[in-house]
Structures are given as C-alpha cells and as structure tokens.
C-alpha cells in the first residue's frame, strides 16, 4: 500500500489527469459533466472514485480513454500517461483516430464495465472476442492465441476454460461473464485498469470472489486499478486513496483510511452517515436532503450549497471554492476549511 500523494517523485506517476473538463453541448445549455478534475495514479496503486449518479464519474473514466461521443466533448485538460515502454504522452493531445490511441486502449489502459452482458457481442464466442483483442495487440500465431486465451480464462478462475472458450456470453452466469470481461481487460497486460462499477450487478459472494481476484492480479501483473463506484464499502475494502466526486468536481481526496476516519467535506460526512454500518445498530440513517442537481449551466457557487447543512449564505453561494490541501495529502473543496476560490478560466462563464 502506498501512502498519500507523491506528486513530484523521481519517476512520473503512471497516470496524471490535469484540469480535465468534459462538457455536453445540449439544446438546454451546457452540461458540465466533468468540470476540472485532477488526479494521480501511482504504480500498483488502487484508486477509488466515489460519486452518486450524476457526479460525472463515468464520463470522467470515458474521457481518459477518449471514449466521449457527441454532444459530449473534452474541452480542456491533460491526461499524462507513462506507457509500458516508459514513454510519456498526453492522451488528450493525440488525434482522434490516431494509431497510438488505439494501442493505448486495452494495451496501456483497459476498462472493465458494469454490465458484461452488454459489453460482449452476443453473436461471437467469448474466446473469439478475447482472441480478437490479443491478435490486435500482439503478434502471436493463431494457435498460440488460443492457448494464451485459455490460460487467461483459467487465471481469472473460470473452470473448464477450454470449453468456455467456445461458449457464447449468454451461456455464462453473471459472475463468469464478469470474469471473462476481466480476462479480456487483462489480455494485453495493461498497467492501468479502469473498473466502472465492476461488481455492482453481482451477488455478494461473487463480488467477494471478483474483488479478491482483482487484488491478486494487481500484484502478480503489476497493475494500478481505478475503481469507479458508488459503493462506499467496496471502496473502503479495496482502495489506497479516494476521490469523492460531486457534480463534476472532486470535493475531497485523501487516503482511504483518512477519508473514513476524518471526512472533512460536509458531503462526504453526510454520505458516510447515510449508509448502514454493519454491526453498529444504527437507529436512524442520516439523510442528504434533496437530490443531485443537473449541472446544466451551473451557477458559480459551491455545487453542494443547496443541500449542505453547514452552508454559509453570502459565502458558499458567491464563488466555487478551490480544492485545497488542509493536511498533508488531504484535499478539500469547502469554505469551512479554506477561503480559497477556484480560479476562473475561459470555460467558467460560457
């Protein structure tokens, strides 16, 4: 487990996201789904990105791989990636159809989706789909590809992999499909795995198997993992560091341990109070009043101000607070902790 941020180590971070903004240009206005996100991922680190629906976490993940489609557009930011060969590039600077971009997807950064049934094609066998990936990214011979994929299926815990290779997605159970999805993601030995709600659709016992598997593979394959989820319990158990997202921005980030022991942002506090803690016999859950607003042409104020129990009129509704380091490695975006305001740029008032 790594401690906190190390922004200026001797080696650059495996992945560094700087000021990422992804907007959707709709008839109703500009939806600022991701509005200035910075994050870092170190070697073998496990990062958690927590957010409710509408927080922009999935759009953020898609932006990293340049998978945003119109009317969405990445308007600003850098995604600095240290590739497997050691070369450092900005993913966002590449041309949309660039060969390099295709080689990054799957090869350097792979994605595991929530719904494996919709991520696989229903008319091709599991084996054929994974083999296609492998053939594209390696120069193995056809026969060797099959051996390689069967071995991969075995490694992710699929029993009878030789037979499963020739089966179609619908023939596998949910847990098996998720394993196959992981096998596909791992097929090119990526150094970064982006897992978007990888276990949300699964039963608890299967979830435990999958999380355990990811942990093992992370060590044996030297991977960094980014979990994107709304499940605080999964985050607590699997990650080293956490970013809490609200309405397109990170509102708090620190080590997982600090976040659960000493949450500073009112949203994080409320969020932690709103889930039942097993074994603690809570009599009443805390409630966050209202629901997440839609970030269409959001006003320049703290996004949480309307639901915040500690909101200060005349302060919180005047400008967007900046994400400031309150204690080493612990960043919070809240006027209760710092008066600093988010600097404006050309995208702030459009």
């Amino acid at each position: 487990m790594t401690d906190g941020d190390q922004p200026s180590g001797p080696k650059p971070n495996r992945l560094e996201v700087q000021g990422l903004k992804t907007y959707f240009f709709l008839d109703e206005g500009i939806l600022k789904a991701v509005d200035g996100i910075d994050l870092t991922v170190g070697d073998q680190e496990t990062i958690g990105i927590i957010g409710e629906s509408g927080s922009g976490k999935s759009v953020m993940a898609r932006s990293l791989l340049r998978l945003v489609t119109r009317p969405g557009e990445i308007v600003k930011g850098n995604v600095i990636l240290r590739r497997k060969d050691g070369g450092v590039i900005d993913v966002l600077a590449l041309a949309p159809g660039a060969d390099q971009l295709r080689r990054i997807r799957g090869n350097d950064i792979a994605m595991v989706f929530q719904e494996p049934i919709s991520a696989f094609s229903p008319v091709h066998t599991i084996g054929a789909q994974i083999s296609e990936m492998v053939a594209l990214h390696t120069d193995l011979k056809k026969h060797d590809v099959r051996t390689y994929v069967v071995d991969l299926l075995r490694r992710v815990g699929i029993s009878n992999p030789g037979q499963r290779f020739d089966e179609y997605p619908h023939q596998l159970s949910g847990g098996m499909r998720q394993r196959a999805m992981i096998a596909m993601a791992l097929s090119c030995r990526p150094k970064i795995v982006l897992a978007d709600e990888p276990t949300t659709a699964l039963d608890v016992t299967i979830q435990a198997q999958i999380l355990e598997l990811m942990k093992e593979l992370q060590q044996s394959e030297d991977m960094s993992v980014i979990y994107i989820t709304h499940d605080l319990a999964v985050v607590a158990e699997t990650t080293d560091r956490v970013y809490v997202m609200y309405l397109g921005r990170v509102v708090e980030s620190t080590t997982t341990e600090r976040l659960f022991a000493n949450p500073l942002h009112p949203y994080t506090r409320k969020l932690l109070g709103s889930i039942p803690h097993p074994g603690r016999h809570t009599h009443r859950l805390e409630v966050i009043e209202g629901s997440v607003p839609t970030p269409i042409d959001p006003p320049a104020q703290c996004a949480f101000v309307g639901r915040c129990p500690s909101a200060m009129p005349g302060v919180c509704d005047q400008a967007v607070p900046a994400l400031t380091e309150i204690e080493p490695g612990h960043f919070v975006r809240c006027y209760l902790h710092s008066e600093e305001r988010e600097p404006e740029d050309e995208w702030t008032n459009i």
Partner: peptide, 24 residues
C-alpha cells in the same frame, strides 16, 4: 456465515479472514 463474511464493510483496515465461497 459465508454471506456475512462476503459483505464488504465501510471500514478500511478491517482485519478479517474472509470466507470466499467457491463456485456458484
């Protein structure tokens, strides 16, 4: 017992031996 053991808890650093059920 296995179900309870598989349930993740919102508490980091929790030390426990998790029973991971085999199969489905």
């Amino acid at each position: 017992e296995a179900l309870l053991s598989a349930m993740p808890a919102p508490e980091p650093n929790r030390q426990r031996a998790r029973i991971v059920l085999k199969g489905e």
